[in-house]
Design a protein around this nucleic acid. Structure first.
Length: 228
DNA sequence: GACCAGGCACATC
DNA sequence: GATGTGCATGGT
């Protein structure tokens, strides 16, 4: 194939995928409506939830969040005064409580050292630089960093999770070996950095994933089944 | 009782 | 660089 034909093919495939991603969004929104994400009252609570939900069912996270609220420590200053065992005991229902207590501690250290304990101060930073800084915090990987950026700080960043990859793979939009960045770029290029839409789209994907998109088998009542 | 859930870091090859 | 493993609770 000539070089030009190859370029034309790549562009065509991109526009096909873009059209399909738009169609999937419309189908999900029609099926489920607005999801009103993120389920959290403050940017700090959203950031804590993003760490606690790592590889964990949200209902377990809710129990841990309720414990933190009841103890009056769901703010950067009060949580910073807890020692490891106190924090781990409060977040126990979220699972991996020792690991997550360390990760929350790393985030608190970062927040106090770099932003005086105020998440709102993060908003002023350059997006790319802020993302790199978040990723440098132990326990904050791409999905957690992007969840904080999008849902706590309203930055135009799409959150890619296991459900997103599963759906994109099943619809042959990406290969099984596609990485986080590749999936994310697909959404960024298809939707022109639109934070409100990224917010709703990711929430809808999670809703679909929870209800219909188990690893196996394929669910015949899935709203996206007509596309397969 | 097995499987799964809104990941990530670290060890090993 | 790719792959495997540990981390843990609670619902289905």
């Amino acid at each position: 194939m000539s070089r030009i034909a190859n370029i034309v093919l790549v562009v065509l495939i991109f526009f096909m995928h873009k059209k399909l991603l738009h169609k999937i969004y419309r189908m999900l929104y029609k099926s489920f409506g607005s999801q009103y994400w993120w389920p959290g009252d403050t940017p700090f609570e959203i950031a804590v939830g993003a760490i606690l939900t790592q590889n964990t069912n949200w209902s377990n996270v809710e129990k841990a969040i309720a414990n933190l609220k009841k103890a009056g420590v769901l703010n950067a200053q009060a949580m910073n005064r807890l020692d490891h065992d106190q924090l781990a005991a409060l977040i126990r229902p979220a699972g991996y409580f020792n690991v997550k207590a360390k990760r929350l501690r790393s985030f608190l250290d970062f927040l106090h050292l770099e932003y005086g304990g105020r998440i709102s101060k993060m908003k002023d930073s350059d997006l790319s630089e802020l993302r790199d800084r978040l990723l440098s915090v132990n326990g904050i990987g791409p999905e957690t960093a992007d969840s904080i950026l999008l849902y706590a700080l309203q930055k135009p960043v799409f959150v890619v999770d296991a459900y997103t990859k599963r759906i994109l793979t099943r619809h042959n939009i990406i290969g099984a070996d596609a990485d986080y960045h590749e999936c994310q770029q697909l959404f960024h290029k298809s939707f022109n950095n639109h934070p409100e839409l990224f917010n709703e789209y990711h929430a809808l994907i999670v809703r679909l994933g929870k209800d219909y998109c188990r690893p196996k088998p394929l669910c015949s009542s899935c709203p996206l089944m007509p596309l397969l």
